[in-house]
Write a protein that binds this DNA or RNA. Structure first.
Length: 196
DNA sequence: GTTAAGATTCCG
DNA sequence: GGAATCTTAACG
């Protein structure tokens, strides 16, 4: 059974290739070039979209994210300084930051903010998948996506959704090591997606 | 070179 | 409650 052919795909040789999506649907890099505390709360409800190598396209609405904000934030990897791992976070918003945790789970993040302002949003869940480790696994995200430009990538992108969402904020998960102050910042944003 | 710990998940 | 599993960062 071949891949589902969409209207926005085009035949190139023997393969159907997904066209770059119209700018009024796809979220552009500009969206991410703002403070992470503006970007993160506006992500729940948006569609996280993936085109796999076999041409199949998977989309699910984001339900849970967390903001990691700059060198002061002791829960943010950038607080350790500019290293090979954190380098991408020091670039302008719109690229992908992925890293391996506990030797087995990839964490999917989107860099936000202006150049030299290291921030990122961790995508912790979508409607069909709970948990950041399982999410990356379902979406086939690994180190190959480090630095991917979310504004132009043909295999990973975001789309707007008109579904109304209520967004709640609460403390971030699993970062008690950062100390009480940073662990208590309400920078986790969860969506309650209305299903009428 | 060595080591401790981690933005997690699954099993008992 | 604890293991799985390995990269990163800190230290010698």
């Amino acid at each position: 059974m071949g891949p589902e052919i969409r209207q926005d795909s085009v035949l190139v040789g023997e393969q159907h290739i997904l066209q770059d999506l119209p700018s009024d649907i796809r979220i552009t890099s500009d969206f991410f070039r703002r403070d992470v505390l503006e970007v993160a709360p506006s992500l729940p409800g948006k569609l996280l979209c993936r085109r796999f190598d076999d041409g199949k396209i998977f989309k699910s609405r984001i339900t849970e994210v967390e903001a990691y904000r700059g060198t002061d934030d002791l829960a943010c990897h950038a607080s350790k300084g500019r290293t090979a791992r954190t380098e991408i976070m020091f670039g302008a918003g719109g690229s992908v930051y992925v890293y391996l945790i506990y030797g087995m789970y990839w964490m999917l993040n989107f860099v936000t903010g202006e150049q030299n302002v290291p921030q990122a949003v961790l995508i912790r869940g979508v409607e069909s998948v709970s948990g950041p480790g399982r999410l990356a696994r379902e979406y086939g995200i690994n180190k190959d996506f480090y630095g991917e430009d979310i504004g132009i990538s043909l295999r990973l992108w975001l789309e707007d959704s008109d579904e109304p969402v209520k967004v709640y904020s609460s403390p971030r998960i699993g970062i008690n090591y950062a100390g009480e102050y940073w662990a208590s910042r309400p920078w986790r944003y969860t969506a309650c997606i209305d299903k009428r």
